[in-house]
Write a protein that binds this DNA or RNA. Structure first.
Lengths: 132, 132
DNA sequence: CGGGATCCGTTAAGATACTG
DNA sequence: CAGTATCTTAACGGATCCCG
């Protein structure tokens, strides 16, 4: 397209890389998507939809998660703006995690997915059993 | 199990493990969820929502995926009953992947998630930049 | 209580080559 | 064309110890 356009039409505008589509290798949304759909991140966000949680509460709620992975997931979620972390410097320390506005838009979609897959489990087991 | 249960009230019915909730460590739905939200699986399912694809077509559509990972993801998706694989034993071979009925219920939820995250990318970048 | 730092085994992922 | 087999490398993930 427009091979010889000398005018102000930058073909490779860096801003366009933002919203592009996930099917493109370089699209940054792919990374963000992975953060959100990560094994523990998904469960943490879903749990936070119910109510704010403290670290230990989340740890108990998301059964099986290690402190390291929960901490790591929460940091990534905070960095991408889905979760807010509030620290109260008391003794003992009190840290609370809650969804941001963006997170409150995201979480229902994840919950919907979770619920659907839960409901589809009989079919999934049937499919697995079907093939000899 | 049910050693001395005379009545028809089995407390620990093994069938109940199925639909339980993902927050429980032993819940099988957690595994199924991971299969579906996997990096490549998610993109493959989303691509198949548009139309059936051949292996090579999918490979080109899902930019950056290796043959190995695509093959692996598709096998898992087929095993769990989201995707159907149809082989035509011609020369050269012709294999087509399409969503099952269950897959056609699943895919829109994933696509919705993808679209939402794509749209939220400006906010995500802003959140990342916000913290020094 | 809420993590950060470190160590280390397990698994996932990518590149490459080969087959029906 | 549509994969499988093999190998190497990178990332994940858990356990442990420690500090504010």
């Amino acid at each position: 397209m427009g091979v010889d356009t000398p005018g102000p039409a930058p073909a490779a505008d860096p801003v366009e890389d933002f919203a592009a589509d996930v099917f493109s290798r370089r699209c940054t949304s792919r990374e963000a998507l992975e953060h959100v759909t990560g094994k523990w991140a998904l469960l943490a966000v879903t749990a936070l939809l119910e109510s704010p949680h403290r670290f230990g509460e989340l740890r108990r709620r998301v059964d099986g998660v290690s402190e390291k992975m929960l901490s790591q997931s929460l940091q990534t979620l905070e960095r991408d703006g889905w979760v807010h972390r509030e620290v109260r410097s008391t003794i003992p320390p009190h840290v609370e995690y809650r969804l941001t506005d963006a997170g409150r838009e995201l979480a229902p979609r994840l919950l919907d997915l979770v619920r659907f897959v839960e409901g589809a489990m009989p079919a999934v087991h049937a499919a697995r059993a079907a093939r000899s």
